[in-house]
Amino acid sequence: MRYFIACLAWCWALGAQALPLVEKQRFELPSFTTQSGATLKQVAVGWEAYGKLNADKSNAILITHFFSGNSHAAGKYSDSDPLPGYWDAIIGPGKAIDTDKYYVLSVDTLANANAFDPHVITTGPASINPDTGKPYGLSFPVVSIRDFVNVQKALLDKLGIKKLHAVVGASMGSFQALDWAVAYPDEVERMVSVIGAGQMDPWTVFGLERWADAIKADPAWNGGDYYAKGEPKAGLDRALAYIIYDATYPDGFNSRYTPPTDEAPKLDIHAGFKSVDELMGHAAIRAHYQDANAILYLVRASQIFVAGYSGQLEDNLKRVTAKTLFMPSTHDRLLVPQMARTTYETLKKLGKDSQYQEITGPWGHLDGLVSIQTQAKVLKDFLDN
């Protein structure tokens, strides 16, 4: 864990300048109808922004966040924060996403995993249903990547932003970025998909199902009705351990955890390994602010993803007019590079302006966060030209 945090701190230190302190803002909708046909009342999400919006509102870049992330993409809330937002290495004055040029904003998703983080604002299964006065639990409707996009669109409409200079997102954020380019082609000039894909495949759907199964197997989950008694901690910890494991390539993983040289497992089938205990400890730390039901909803939103929400990917990609850049991680085991390459190749076949550049590092999927600065010039050139 210390090495991983050190990587993040090093990434931040590479930046030319620090951003001013960041303020979390609140966006509300009196109602919102999901793609599944349900209408939610009193919807709220958090958002934050860096840089200044120019007079004609043409310099906006939207950052769409990953599965277990939130809208805190860069900067700090206070000087005492131990680390800045997850992409501080590339967002800020003089950086690849240059806040001297661009107005950069990011939005918490519906059903955000970090429902209990005081810096996150999200309507999700842990929220109070205004019709019952109790948490939604599993009565919360299925939400999709398109729903996340449409809430972001509503915020941009309120801000008077008619066109985005770019949409940039990593992992689940890449799903949103590409869906933006399909859903609102006249409003997106550039799209960057980092460690992403154009649609899910059966192999990935099953991998994600393991995350949900770990939660549902915990008796404390109680069919999603656990808010009065507390989180299904064992199941949530296990799910987050799977997420960490799946997102990490062996090189990075093995540098982070103790080698399996324990003596006790040689003698006792009940004995565990120190490395497993370390991973579970890290998962427990991450679980502190997360909601188990929200994980289930984000798993489902990811499993049903195809850019365009429904139909065939190639047909949907015909709608794209934006320049696109795909930046998968060479060693990604969660969203393997071929998923991004296939989408890139389809766009090229359709005569679209598309680029492809892999990110190489020891962390696999996580290289889209901790190693993206190695391709900062590629990203900056794409955005500035």
Rank of each mutant, 00 (worst) to 15 (best):
Y226L: 09
I195C: 06
S71V: 06
P265L: 10
F175R: 00
D332P: 00
K52H: 12
I244C: 13
V320S: 03
T324V: 08
L62H: 06
A44I: 12
S275I: 00
V167H: 02
E314G: 04
L296R: 06
A241G: 11
I304H: 02
T122E: 00
L62Y: 09
H165S: 13
G124I: 01
D353T: 15
P260T: 03
L379K: 03
G311F: 02
D81M: 05
L279M: 11
A111G: 00
V194Y: 00
A89G: 15
V299N: 06
E358C: 12
D381Q: 14
E28Q: 14
A271D: 12
K153E: 15
L8K: 11
L240A: 02
E28T: 14
V151C: 13
W211P: 05
A6D: 04
A292I: 06
L83N: 06
H288Q: 12
Q35D: 08
A18I: 00
S144H: 00
S31M: 08
F4M: 13
Q199K: 15
Y242Q: 12
A241V: 09
I91R: 01
G46V: 11
Y344R: 04
L296W: 03
A220N: 09
L62S: 03
V151W: 05
G368W: 02
A60F: 04
D179N: 12
Q35P: 01
A74D: 05
G94V: 02
N316M: 09
G85F: 06
N316W: 09
A89P: 07
V143D: 02
A340M: 11
V22Q: 11
